[in-house]
């Protein structure tokens, strides 16, 4: 396309200002001296100090990370299997139902998913705690993983797998030695997505958790309902920082890999 017009510049500037100013304000006021979140009273890191002493928050954070690691790992395994079945499984009984169950949780309102899982857990007499949250998170995030992985599998040159079979691999060897290494980036981003979804989730966790296990979003939600507090600002700032560093690192790494590959290709073109 052609050059940016003034209209494009203005809409991009305003749009990104709209996206980022609220978070910037949040971050700035986490360093506010005053308890009042809206009046600036000088720089201080005391809210971070208080946060570090808040046992309830720390415990909830620990539970959240534990749940996220377990559920995203489980979801990645199940989601990759599901994606493989969807793309390579051919026909089998109940395929339509299966693909329906893969896609439905993506559009299902969280309140419904949460409610239905809670009713199941009560129905089978499962005590609500870390286990039930992990089960709930695995179920909905495996669907996201399977969408990410299957979109990679669809563009995957099938003759690579056939070549592996042709050269003597059993089907499972072909998957382990050829398919998996090639789709690994998609599997990893699927894991990351599942991990963030789990870290982030409030509604489903509220239904699936019991008194024995509270996750960070649940804790934040109940604190925030009472109003704005600088301690929550501090916590939010930390979470934003972690995500930002993570996303930027990931994109730099992938960018560098792309640049390197391009250079190598150019070098190869010169040699021949």
């Amino acid at each position: 396309m052609t050059r940016l017009s003034w209209f494009n510049v203005v809409s991009l500037t305003l749009g990104f200002a709209f996206l980022y100013i609220p978070m910037l304000i949040l971050i700035i006021f986490s360093f506010n001296e005053s308890k009042l979140v809206t009046v600036w009273a000088g720089f201080s890191t005391k809210w971070y100090g208080e946060l570090m002493q808040n046992e309830a928050f720390l415990n909830a954070a620990w539970v959240t990370v534990k749940v996220a690691v377990m559920s995203s790992t489980l979801a990645t395994v199940l989601g990759t299997m599901a994606a493989y079945v969807m793309v390579r499984g051919g026909r089998f009984m109940g395929r339509t139902l299966f693909s329906g169950m893969i896609y439905a949780p993506l559009v299902m309102p969280e309140v419904i998913t949460g409610l239905s899982l809670l009713l199941l857990f009560i129905g089978i007499g499962l005590d609500r705690g870390v286990l039930t949250i992990v089960l709930a998170h695995t179920t909905f995030s495996m669907c996201y993983v399977s969408v990410v992985v299957s979109s990679r599998l669809v563009t995957f040159d099938r003759s690579l797998e056939e070549a592996a079979l042709d050269l003597g691999c059993s089907p499972s060897e072909a998957f382990r030695l050829v398919t998996l290494p090639i789709i690994a980036p998609a599997v990893i981003s699927g894991w990351l997505l599942a991990f963030t979804l789990s870290l982030d989730d409030l509604v489903i966790a509220s239904f699936a958790s019991g008194p024995s296990a509270t996750t960070l979003p649940i804790k934040i939600f109940s604190a925030v309902r009472l109003g704005v507090s600088p301690e929550i600002n501090a916590l939010s700032t930390l979470m934003i920082a972690v995500v930002t560093v993570g996303v930027i690192t990931a994109s730099l790494v992938s960018k560098r890999a792309m640049v390197r590959q391009k250079q190598e290709e150019q070098a190869a073109a010169r040699v021949t």
Binding site: D157, S159, L160, E162, A163, A164, L165, D166, L167, G168, C169, S170, V178, P181, I182
Partner: peptide, 20 residues
């Protein structure tokens, strides 16, 4: 006889070289 047990090999149109 499945493909991996045949004394037949194939050169694919896309070459199907393993990129990794």
């Amino acid at each position: 006889v499945p493909p991996n047990k045949r004394a037949v090999n194939m050169m694919f149109q896309s070459y199907a070289l393993f990129p990794h």
